[in-house]
């Protein structure tokens, strides 16, 4: 897993609420047996029409917007547990997703793939969306160690992340590394 610490990047706004993982990656693309290549089909049916032509009104097709941060409406990633949604975001090039609320399973999947989900208040979410809408080239600074997310001097947001997952992201560790290291505790539990 890739490490994350500091990031300085533009953002893509997607204000829609309750975006489910079927939209992030439709089920017909779940037939692959590797983790690679899902980025091409990220938000496939919002991004392309039935003839596979880009839909100009969709934000990822707007040349003004790019960057490693996706700012999305509340309850991002609800629905199916498919980790392919996180793989698609990573493969496309997103490293951070900001929302006022994340669905549980998606959040866990994101963290397990080196994506940092940042939860902000609804007020801050609206403020961030406004900044990006007014200025697509706005640069945001993210500092995971310090747990803050800033836009110039205008907006400084402190975010929460649990200590264990923070450690994993900063060092590029995953849960299996840890679980394998405590195998004797697991065996001891089994014999209780």
């Amino acid at each position: 897993m890739e490490k994350i610490n500091k990031l300085s990047t533009t953002a893509v706004p997607l204000a829609m609420e309750d975006i489910d993982t079927d939209q992030i990656i439709p089920s017909r693309f779940l037939k692959a047996i590797s983790r690679a290549g899902f980025g091409d089909n990220l938000f496939r049916d919002w991004r392309y029409d039935k003839a596979d032509k880009p839909i100009p009104s969709f934000i990822l097709n707007n040349p003004l917007y790019n960057g490693e941060i996706l700012i999305a409406g509340r309850n991002f990633g609800c629905g199916s547990s498919r980790e392919h949604a996180a793989w698609a975001l990573v493969d496309y090039g997103f490293k951070i997703v900001v929302s006022s609320f994340f669905a549980d399973i998606f959040k866990g999947n994101a963290l397990n793939n080196g994506i940092l989900p940042i939860t902000v208040s609804e007020t801050n979410l609206q403020a961030l969306l406004k900044i990006v809408n007014l200025n697509p080239k706005a640069i945001f600074e993210v500092d995971l160690a310090a747990q803050n997310f800033c836009y110039k001097e205008a907006l400084k947001i402190n975010f929460e992340i649990d200590a264990y997952k923070k450690e994993c992201l900063l060092n590029g560790y995953d849960d299996i590394d840890y679980l394998l290291s405590i195998k004797q505790d697991i065996v001891a539990y089994e014999s209780l």
Partner: peptide
């Protein structure tokens, strides 16, 4: 429900 990384965790450690 769990994601695939967690499927791998359970396969390898049952935890």
């Amino acid at each position: 429900g769990i994601g695939t990384s967690q499927v791998e965790q359970v396969l390898s450690t049952q935890c």
